[in-house]
Design a binder for these strands. Structure first.
Ligand SMILES: [Zn+2]
Ligand SMILES: [Zn+2]
Ligand SMILES: [Zn+2]
Ligand SMILES: [Zn+2]
Lengths: 152, 152
DNA sequence: ACAAATATGTTATAATATAACATTAATATT
DNA sequence: AATATTAATGTTATATTATAACATATTTGT
């Protein structure tokens, strides 16, 4: 299977998962939202909002910043994508059905992201919160560095 | 000791630590840098770059965005302050001499920050990096929520 | 058919950050 | 001390990221 074919199937799979999840939760995955999600999955790494806007404009020339940001908000709120806070960038979620505290390995060289889940993180968040009488709401955990491929 | 007095002493202590650290490392804590650091420590919570710029302008009306961002860069690079990526905000470092992987409890209500260090985080970063053949470089770990004081 | 809620369109602007180049100040070299 | 080199600051302009506010269209519930 070629690299392009693989990307296509990853994207198709993500779209199917998104549709299923919206179906279950009574959310509307409109044409616009589906288009944007598809654009997000089209590249292997992360994407920037205005790059996405440029792509969307090719399909719908009337698209403007609020178009993209509103759509991103919907996708984030419903766990279909994530925002990488340290990069102001966005990435499709690899397992939208089962979300604990996730974190990201971000390659500075190739822009690829590894999305990870670990109970250890949940434990650290829980214990540090307890120690500080803190009620956690949103966790941001991002590790930037160099990936396996880029080491050579 | 009043709240204001306490803040003053926290700020003075931070300034002394910063001076000591720059002395040790041969860094120049210029007048501008010291002024900005003082402004950062003046409020108990986090600060935004342009708010800082407004404050600085009261002292030096010729200050402009690059003035503040360059100074913030210096202070970040040398571990005297941190940037909170999820807020685009800045905060003085509470222990600039001994920096492992630190993380932050951010209160959404009162903007106060708790800076924490934990070996558990180092361990999670180390083990997940090893598992993924990833060389970590910069860690962002921020927990937003509600602090003890704001719970009532 | 109508009202209400949701989604999208549109204009304008706010908030965050950096590039590029000029000048000044500090440090090192002769 | 004069000169070269580097580091810091000043200055103008612009890039990047994001939202407010209001208008219109579409969907959903009654
Ligand atoms: Zn995810
Ligand atoms: Zn890579
Ligand atoms: Zn610190
Ligand atoms: Zn609080």
């Amino acid at each position: 299977m070629s690299k392009r074919q693989k990307n296509l199937s990853v994207s198709a799979e993500a779209l199917r998962k998104a549709e299923a999840l919206c179906e279950i939760n009574g959310l509307k995955l409109t044409k616009l939202r589906k288009q944007v999600l598809k654009l997000i999955w089209r590249k292997p790494g992360y994407v920037k909002a205005y790059d996405l806007l440029d792509e969307l404009k090719k399909i719908d020339p009337s698209a403007k910043p609020p178009t993209i940001y509103r759509t991103l908000d919907f996708l984030i709120e419903n766990g279909l994508i994530h925002k990488l806070q340290s990069l102001n960038a966005f990435i499709g979620c690899h397992h939208p059905h089962e979300h604990n505290e996730c974190y990201f390995l971000i390659c500075d060289s190739c822009q690829k992201i590894e999305e990870c889940c670990s109970k250890k993180i949940n434990n650290v968040v829980a214990s540090t919160s307890k120690n500080n009488n803190f009620i956690p709401n949103k966790v941001t955990f991002e590790i930037a560095g160099t990936c396996q491929n880029c080491l050579n």
